[in-house]
């Protein structure tokens, strides 16, 4: 199958078997090392990528379904923001929000999706988004704290009453 899509800002035309997942295409054929396979069951979020502006599980998407779409992996997140480091990456690094690192690039993608919006967010919103990403090392706290601080510094944080 012919498939054409944009990966981290560059257009690609490829021939891909229909049964190949987007995750396998990205990791095994396109050297996007950030796309980790943690479960291939659509649960852990380690393979998260942005398709257009939405974070999706790339293990639950066929590569051919990316045809005509804009795919951004963690490698491309900083580039699309025009910097060497994205705000999310800098926030996570600043708080030491990882140990083994296997979940980290998926977390970056999921949080990048949240940051790219413009509506004010509560801590609960961040928890909801992050609850789709499994981390076995950190206990999530430093990740949450890092992102909430980032939101607060950009005036995007909204207090939730009663919680």
């Amino acid at each position: 199958m012919q498939v054409g899509f944009e990966l981290n800002g560059e257009h690609l035309d490829l021939d891909v078997e229909a049964s190949v997942s987007l995750a396998d295409l990205l990791h095994s054929r396109l050297a996007a090392a950030s796309v980790h396979l943690g479960c291939e069951q659509g649960v852990c979020g380690a393979c998260a990528v942005l398709v257009d502006e939405e974070a999706v599980r790339s293990c639950l998407m066929l590569a051919v379904q990316a045809d005509g779409r804009r795919v951004t992996t963690a490698e491309g997140v900083a580039r699309r923001r025009g910097g060497r480091w994205s705000e999310v990456e800098a926030a996570l690094v600043g708080k030491g929000a990882f140990q083994c690192g296997f979940c980290t690039s998926g977390v970056v993608v999921a949080l990048e999706e949240l940051l790219a919006g413009d509506e004010p967010l509560t801590r609960e919103d961040v928890v909801e988004q992050l609850s789709g990403q499994i981390c076995r090392c950190t206990g999530y706290v430093p990740i949450l704290d890092a992102f909430v601080s980032l939101l607060a510094s950009t005036g995007r944080m909204r207090e939730e009453g009663g919680r």
Binding site: L7, N8, E10, L12, H27, R29, L30, A31, A32, A33, S34, V35, H36, L37, T73, A74, E75, G76, V77, A78, R79, R84, W85, V88, E89, A90, L92, V93, G94, G96, F98, G101, F102, T104, S105, V108
Partner: peptide, 28 residues
Amino acid sequence: MGPAAPRPALRPGPGRGRHTRGGGRYVA
């Protein structure tokens, strides 16, 4: 083959910052 994303030039902290963008090297 797509172009590999550039490896981060900046490595703040103890060098684990690479993990934010797939800089880890696991068996896979």
